[in-house]
Simulated scan of single mutants.
Amino acid sequence: MATDRRTLLADAAIGVLADMGTRGLTHRAVDRAAGLPSGTTSAYYRTRQALLTALVRRLVDLDQAELESAGAAAPVPRDAGELAARIAALAERRLTGDGRRRTLARYACAIESVRHPELRDILVPRENAARAAVHDFLAARGVAHPEERTVTLLTCVDGLVFDRLVNGGEVGEREVLGLVAAALR
């Protein structure tokens, strides 16, 4: 039961952070969001830092599951257009619905990690099937230093997601195709 309760609280904390920002992330706000009695969150996570750490771990777990699923569901893309379409679809998921809330929380945690390096260690990008598909696509085309190019391409896409999250709009396939083309050079 404790693990289920901890997951429920971490999920509620993600929602609170997305909806109310870092200043709104309190034990009481998480209790309310989870529909639990006052004091429940502080019983599981004594400090705000412990709550934030649990939130970040849960966020990474959810992201990894999504990326594993996205990458494992399809073979290595056949061409740049297919890769761009997949990346644009993932970016769109990050900008809508629950994906948007997780993205808002992720960026808030990234900023918080500047002051708390232990969070940065949790947020470090990990290997997953989607990332491997990008790497394998670039390597299959003879790109020099495919790992570096993969990181650069995905960082650029992350920048587009951030821009659209703040300024509105969507990440289109054409835009991503330009980034893929640059990675292939």
Rank of each mutant, 00 (worst) to 15 (best):
R102Q: 02
L165D: 04
H27D: 02
L119I: 07
D11Q: 10
T103P: 06
S69F: 07
V56A: 06
R28Q: 14
E147W: 06
A33G: 05
L55D: 02
G99K: 10
L67G: 04
P77V: 03
L62S: 05
A29G: 00
H116L: 10
L83S: 01
R115P: 00
A140H: 10
E82V: 05
T41H: 04
L138S: 11
D63F: 14
P146S: 07
L123S: 02
P125H: 13
C156F: 11
R48A: 11
A18I: 12
T96A: 14
R164T: 05
A85T: 13
I87Y: 10
D163I: 00
A133T: 06
I122Y: 02
T40G: 01
A139R: 11
T7G: 03
R102C: 00
R115N: 04
Q49A: 12
V134Q: 07
A70Q: 09
T41S: 01
E92F: 03
R94N: 04
A182C: 09
Q49W: 09
E82Y: 06
R32G: 08
R131I: 01
L36S: 02
L9V: 00
P117E: 05
G39E: 00
L8R: 09
R57S: 08
A70P: 01
R149H: 07
H116Y: 11
S38C: 12
E118C: 04
V76T: 12
L55M: 00
A74L: 13
P77M: 01
I111G: 11
T155A: 15
A2I: 10
R141G: 09
R131A: 00
D63W: 12
P125K: 15
N128C: 05
R86N: 05
L62D: 06
S69K: 14
R102T: 01
H145P: 05
L62H: 08
L52Q: 10
R58I: 02
L83N: 01
R185T: 09
C156G: 08
E173K: 13
V56H: 14
H27R: 10
A89E: 10
L153K: 15
L95N: 10
V124P: 03
Q64D: 09
L123C: 01
E148L: 04
V157Q: 08
M20P: 08
T41V: 02
Y45G: 00
R164Y: 06
D11P: 03
L17G: 07
A89Q: 09
P117S: 10
E112I: 00
D158V: 03
R126S: 04
G159K: 12
S69N: 14
I14F: 13
D163F: 11
T41W: 00
H135W: 10
L154Q: 06
L9Q: 08
P146G: 02
T103S: 12
E170N: 11
R174V: 11
L119R: 08
R174I: 02
C156M: 07
A13S: 15
P77E: 08
V114T: 12
Q49S: 10
R115K: 05
A50Y: 05
R48C: 05
R94Q: 06
A84L: 02
L153A: 07
G97D: 03
V124L: 09
V16F: 01
A91F: 03
V166G: 03
L165A: 06
V166T: 06
I87N: 05
D11L: 03
D98K: 11
T22G: 15
R185E: 11
G99C: 13
R28N: 15
R100P: 00
I122F: 07
R78T: 03
